[in-house]
Nucleic acid binder design. Structure first.
Length: 414
RNA sequence: CGGGGUGUGGCGCAGUGGUAGCGCGCGUCGUUCGGGACGACGAGGCCGGCGGUUCAAGUCCGCCCACCCCGACCA
């Protein structure tokens, strides 16, 4: 992608006080564009990152054996009346057709996935069943904030599982926890805290939340400095000073909730009268679980955790481009053009700053703002070599073009 | 949903009832070029909307809309 023709420009000046660093950086670097309160457009680089995040999530859902589906966002009112949530689910957007038919705009999809699963589940041999989708959710939040971290329309992966009994559910639940941990590790998060959930409609049974520690978050957490103990401060009845698991010091902090998992029990299968025949031929309601990951919120959380004063620092797993090529050679782009074509032909994605009318300083500042992990630079000083620099530090190395190709392929496992 | 604030060129802002200005950006030309360069010239505005007061409204009054912030809310 050439910046001169293909990139929506970065923004120097906004004057706004941003309520989170990720909000500011994603807008300034040209990844998202604010449309209205809680609504954002994803520009090409932002979409590239979002797609990479969702591909990682998808891979791990598939590994669980879950089946990917796509459920509608327009939900007939009847389905929500059946679960008695039409009036009680207060962030539900409601829309009306020309013929006065009412719909909910899906904030979650139990109302759709449960009757769908009912059509397939006949006997215990059909279980367990896992169905998931990655799509758009709508929630009429009282107040949207922090950019993409809390929007009214956002992207989410939601998985729903159906089980013959509680034991099978619990085994599946544990496997999802492992899959989630793999996903978060792959996305570059070093420390995601799993906590017991704080509340909600159906949390009488157990449920967990996954939280990334950062001040931009909305969740107050206490956690152990040494082990993996963590808890939502809301559920605390007494103030803890020592970790109940290992006795070490307890810390407090804010966090962004990036995922959650719930035991739904038979609440929805009862509402939709889903029954399967057990081994004795008796009708039984399947036990359900639901498992969410906010993929667009992850995009924000990744930036929130990976940035410095100059801009974003993308983890390699989700970087919008493999390399950012900067041409500083005066009035000549032949060498840089050659590098660009060579890398592209090798399957390496490159953001190429080919602009001739822009100063060297501006190109360098913009490259740090955008935050591609590897910067390649040619100038009057580099001869027939290419300067290789990582976004995370100031060290530079000189490579020939074939060496650059090799090192990029190694870095990204291409 | 309560409380507070802001709406003026693309963006950020100033503007005292009397014919709308600055910075950035943008266009042309020239000089620059390893951390958001500089000069010259130039283009660009129903001042959020509707109504009212006035000889005269960006400015005063009323209503509405949008956005931001604090709180409540948040599967």
């Amino acid at each position: 992608m050439k910046i001169s023709t293909d990139y929506i420009k970065t923004i120097t000046q906004t004057g706004k006080e941003f309520d989170s660093r990720s909000h500011e950086l994603l807008i300034k670097a040209g990844f998202i564009d604010p449309v209205a309160s809680g609504l954002y457009s994803y520009l090409p680089p932002g979409l590239a990152v979002l797609n990479k995040i969702e591909d990682i999530v998808r891979t791990h859902m598939n590994s669980l054996g879950a089946l990917e589906v796509s459920l509608p966002s327009l939900h007939p009112k009847d389905h929500w009346l059946q679960t008695k949530r039409w009036d009680s689910f207060d962030v539900l957007f409601k829309v009306q057709s020309r013929h006065d038919k009412e719909y909910g705009l899906g904030p979650s999809h139990e109302e759709i996935v449960t009757p769908l699963a009912a059509k397939y589940i006949q006997t215990h041999k059909d279980l367990p069943l896992g169905l998931y989708q990655i799509g758009t959710k709508f929630r009429d939040e009282a107040r949207a904030k922090s950019g993409i971290l809390r929007g009214r329309e956002f992207r989410m992966k939601d998985l729903y599982s159906f089980h013959a009994d509680n034991l099978d559910f619990e085994e599946y639940y544990k496997k999802v926890i492992v899959a989630y941990q793999k996903i978060f590790t792959e996305l570059g998060f070093e420390d995601v805290k799993m906590t017991e959930a704080s509340g909600g409609d159906f949390t009488k049974k157990f449920s967990h939340e996954f939280n990334v520690l950062t001040e931009a978050g909305e969740v107050d957490l206490i956690y152990c400095a040494a082990c993996d103990f963590a808890q939502n401060a809301e559920v605390l009845t007494t103030k803890l000073t020592k970790c109940p698991k290992c006795g070490e010091e307890i810390k407090e902090g804010r966090a962004i909730e990036i995922g959650n998992i719930f035991d739904l029990g038979t609440r929805f299968s009862d509402d939709f009268k889903v029954k399967f025949k057990d081994e004795q031929g008796r009708p039984v309601s399947p036990h359900m679980g639901c498992y969410g990951i906010g993929t667009s919120r992850l995009l924000g959380a990744i930036v929130e955790v990976n940035n410095d004063k100059n801009g974003i620092i993308w983890p390699t797993s989700v970087a919008p481009f493999h390399a950012h090529l900067v041409n500083l050679v005066r009035d000549d782009s032949k060498f840089a053009d050659l590098i660009y074509r060579t890398l592209q032909s090798e399957g390496i994605s490159v953001l190429y700053d080919d602009r001739s009318e822009v100063s060297a300083g501006e190109k360098l500042v913009v490259s740090d703002l955008i935050g591609v992990p590897i910067r390649l630079l040619v100038s009057d000083r580099t001869g027939d070599q290419v300067e290789w620099k990582l976004r995370i530090d100031e060290k530079t190395r000189m490579f020939s073009v074939p060496e650059v190709v090799k090192h990029l392929k190694d870095a990204y496992v291409i």
